[in-house]
Write a protein that binds this DNA or RNA. Structure first.
Lengths: 148, 148
DNA sequence: GGCCATTGCGCAATGT
DNA sequence: CACATTGCGCAATGGC
């Protein structure tokens, strides 16, 4: 599912942004006037900004502009790639941890069993000794109950 | 670096998309003529299609169009939100698993130690038997009373 | 002040 | 046919 899907007529590829770009460029030259004040949602009033001093409207025709855009596009792609990779890594990490968890649980099971056997042996001996001989030493009778 | 950054006066914030939307809608009516033919990259030339057969170029003015767009925009937002949430969940899962791992390791350590103690006891006992002695303990001389 | 990185958003193609 | 996903470009902003 979900290959990369590289649309043939995709605008995206390197130079082809033309479509969009073109559209933008041709359709609207430079942003007419942004923000009509309204701005529905939680509308903030725009600061009393006009466009008096702006560095420059930056024509969409400008070489500067296109260059900047392209660079940003690259950066964006890179960033997104990185992001995706990270997500994937995280997913992998989950699996890794799950595996380790299983391993640990298995080990615990084993140890528990061993312990149980030994304790039983101990008890047996104790009984024998109690019946015939001296108890090995009573001090250690404490059943640990550490578990949980 | 890079917190989530919730810009207070963020432009992107919902309301202002108006600009974009507006810009698009108002600025350009329908794409003049897209497809520069060339389409440099791997670009396919567009089939000699005009817009004869296709379902329809779908005017950007069309109500249909705008409605479709808006719906899609919603869907996109939703999808992205979901995606983000999932990522976050995954991250959380990692932490959860890490914690559990630690717990398990602690338990293993404990069990191992217990086991070790028991084994030592056993060995000791074995040795004693091997020596044919039962120095159960010097203090524990219950029946001994050699007098003095 | 510039440059790259991130991020929200809309568009369009594609998947389900 | 409607909704979901995804790649992409744009613009604003964060950070150095």
């Amino acid at each position: 599912m979900s290959k990369i899907s590289q649309p043939a007529s995709s605008p995206g590829v390197n130079g082809i942004s033309v479509i969009h770009t073109q559209a933008h460029a041709s359709g609207l030259q430079q942003v007419p006037q942004l923000v009509p004040a309204g701005s529905g949602g939680g509308g903030k009033a725009v600061p009393p900004s006009k466009q008096s001093k702006k560095s420059s409207p930056l024509d969409r025709n400008s070489d500067e502009y296109r260059q900047r855009r392209e660079r940003n596009n690259m950066a964006v792609k890179k960033s997104r790639l990185k992001s995706k990779q990270k997500a994937q890594d995280t997913l992998q990490r989950v699996n890794q941890l799950k595996e380790e968890n299983e391993r640990l649980e298995a080990k615990i099971k084993l140890l528990t069993k061993e312990l149980s056997v030994l304790k039983d042996l101990f008890l047996e001996h104790a009984h024998n000794l109690a019946d015939n001989v001296q108890p090995i030493s009573t001090e250690n009778t404490s059943s640990d109950n550490t578990g949980q």
